[in-house]
Design a protein around this nucleic acid. Structure first.
Lengths: 137, 137
DNA sequence: GTATCTGCAAAACATTTGCCCTTTG
DNA sequence: CAAAGGGCAAATGTTTTGCAGATAC
């Protein structure tokens, strides 16, 4: 951790504080808002460097901005195509993936697993909406 | 496949032809260039619909545009953080992921596995560069 | 004083939207 | 002619860049 500390700038520390204190994924814009008197570019620069150092994760998603999260235990992600909400899914990529990736000869630094579909919340709402529609017909 | 055919517009067919004929992932811009007399917006619309229908996959990556690929057999992806090249990695997400995702109660439609790191190509070049530098010091 | 960090504004991309024209049934 | 597809340009949203001032060593 000593080495990590060395490379940290004040802004990186502040960004990291915001991220590590948040239970949810945040976009660059959200982080920007929760820190006063900071330029947008600086936040992006800090996020880039924190990502490169492996201290945080950047998640690139369909439609809209990337989100950042403080690296805790490994997990996967699920994104609802309907409401756009992002869920953490416990568990990690597992041996199978690691082995396949290793055999490729590349140096793997991290693996993102992202599923897309309809979340349980939207599934229920759709059901309700359908019932309403039927009633009104 | 009958149902699929019904919803295909001429543009969707042309886009699909380009994608299914390409061994590599293409960005919207690349697809645009390989089709004459087509508006940018139309290509995006076609790609959106093809993606929704599950006929092609959109892959959202760090830095730069999303790439599209024709859906053949399931596989994973590796992106080199240095040269930006995207590699296909044989194998799929496996049971472990599917089960974990299912338990979440969401309706999973697809899962992307993307690893980031340094590709074997860049690993070699870096080695060579280092040797050169040593020579010149 | 040189390198690093930061803020600001502009630039650069990637993607989406609105509007209008064309085609098809 | 209504509905759907498509072209174009402008708008939007996200991220990056260039530059100048401030700070740290």
């Amino acid at each position: 951790m000593a080495r990590v500390k060395e490379i940290m700038t004040p802004l990186m520390e502040r960004v990291l504080q915001v991220l590590s204190g948040s239970p949810v994924h945040l976009t660059a814009e959200e982080i920007l808002k929760s820190i006063n008197d900071v330029g947008r570019a600086t936040v992006y620069r800090a996020l880039d460097r924190l990502t490169e150092e492996g201290i945080i994760h950047r998640l690139s998603l369909e439609h809209g901005a990337s989100v950042y999260e403080y690296v805790r235990k490994p997990h996967m992600h699920f994104r609802c195509s309907q409401c756009g909400k992002l869920y953490d899914i416990p568990g990690d990529a597992g041996e199978a993936i690691a082995v396949a990736m290793m055999q490729s000869g590349h140096r793997i630094e991290r693996t993102d697993v992202i599923s897309y579909g309809i979340c349980f919340n939207c599934l229920n709402q759709t059901q309700n909406t359908k019932m309403e529609e039927t009633k009104n017909d």
